[in-house]
Simulated scan of single mutants.
Amino acid sequence: MNTQAKPPSFPPQRPPGGWKLPAVLPITWKKPFEWLWMGLKDMGHSPWLSLMHGLVLALGGGLITWLAHDRFWLLAGAVSGFLVVAPVLATSLYAMSRAIERKEPVNFGLLIQTWTRWQTQRFNEPASYWCLVRFGVLLGLAGTGWVMTSSALITLLTPEPVQTPMDFIHHVVLSQEHHVFELWLVLGGLLAAPVFASSVVAMPLLLDRKLNTLQAVLISWKTALTHPLPMALWALLIMGLSLFGVLMLFVGLVLVVPILGHASWHAYRDLVDTSDLAERTPSQGTL
């Protein structure tokens, strides 16, 4: 009989009942406001590093608008994809909040490490840092799907062609002859809800714990379904602040992005019981 012990592997072998999702911690409906306050405090810890993230996204949004200002669907697609992928772009903000929580140094080197460490990982390793990249691709595809669906809806139901942002305002938003705008908002909400449920804690979770993308998404869904009202409030706050930042000609994103990024870390920490989840550590070649 071969009694040689088998080497450990990751992810661990599934127990008879399958992989068990971690517990979701109890919260009150007021928690989203506390997350924003904690995000503001984290931003104050290293303001220049935090605001740099917002500045990069604001410049990116401004560049998109400048390049596609007279082509509505290109502009809508770029901005939608930009906002959907924003949780991925905020990864180093999560790393900063984690370092603050652990009383570790928060400096530019931390940001460099966060954005370069994934390149040293094997792409096929189930719980490697590549999971962050894969999830970002999925979010980008979700944004593309929304723009294609939106374009098809308005093209089919609007009698006038919509080619520019002003066409959209005149023929869809301000039109009194049909209810395309209301239908467009409902459809957007229906498509945005599963994206939010899939990502509400997934990105900071993938940064912090050794999980693959599917596991992180399942935990995120469990979180959203366990606390539907606080999560709905959190989604409204994120949407409202992001819309404010965009309507301020993207300048508002300089402040909004770091607050939401840091706050999202605290949301993850307050929502998910990570005591049984393996931690990513630099000694293992991951973050």
Results as ranks from 00 to 15, higher is better:
residue 180 V to Y: 15
residue 180 V to D: 14
residue 182 E to H: 09
residue 182 E to D: 11
residue 182 E to P: 01
residue 183 L to C: 07
residue 183 L to H: 08
residue 183 L to Y: 11
residue 183 L to I: 07
residue 183 L to R: 04
residue 183 L to W: 15
residue 184 W to Y: 15
residue 186 V to K: 05
residue 186 V to E: 05
residue 187 L to V: 14
residue 188 G to W: 01
residue 188 G to C: 03
residue 189 G to M: 06
residue 189 G to P: 13
residue 190 L to M: 12
residue 190 L to R: 02
residue 191 L to A: 07
residue 191 L to C: 09
residue 192 A to N: 07
residue 193 A to N: 09
residue 193 A to T: 13
residue 193 A to H: 12
residue 193 A to Y: 15
residue 193 A to M: 14
residue 194 P to L: 10
residue 195 V to C: 04
residue 195 V to R: 00
residue 196 F to V: 00
residue 196 F to H: 01
residue 197 A to Q: 14
residue 198 S to C: 14
residue 198 S to H: 09
residue 199 S to Q: 14
residue 199 S to G: 15
residue 199 S to T: 15
residue 199 S to M: 11
residue 200 V to R: 05
residue 201 V to R: 04
residue 201 V to G: 04
residue 201 V to A: 06
residue 202 A to Q: 09
residue 202 A to W: 10
residue 202 A to T: 13
residue 203 M to W: 13
residue 203 M to C: 06
residue 204 P to I: 02
residue 204 P to E: 10
residue 208 D to A: 11
residue 208 D to L: 05
residue 208 D to S: 14
residue 208 D to E: 13
residue 208 D to I: 00
residue 209 R to V: 03
residue 209 R to H: 09
residue 210 K to T: 07
residue 210 K to N: 10
residue 210 K to A: 12
residue 211 L to A: 05
residue 211 L to V: 10
residue 211 L to M: 08
residue 212 N to G: 13
residue 212 N to T: 03
residue 215 Q to N: 11
residue 216 A to W: 05
residue 217 V to E: 04
residue 217 V to S: 05
residue 218 L to I: 00
residue 218 L to W: 14
residue 219 I to R: 08
residue 220 S to G: 12
residue 222 K to F: 05
residue 222 K to M: 04
residue 223 T to E: 07
residue 223 T to C: 13
residue 225 L to M: 11
residue 225 L to G: 04
residue 226 T to P: 03
residue 226 T to K: 02
residue 226 T to Y: 00
residue 227 H to M: 03
residue 227 H to E: 02
residue 227 H to F: 03
residue 228 P to D: 02
residue 229 L to W: 11
residue 230 P to G: 01
residue 232 A to S: 14
residue 233 L to V: 15
residue 233 L to T: 10
residue 235 A to T: 02
residue 237 L to G: 03
residue 237 L to W: 03
residue 238 I to D: 00
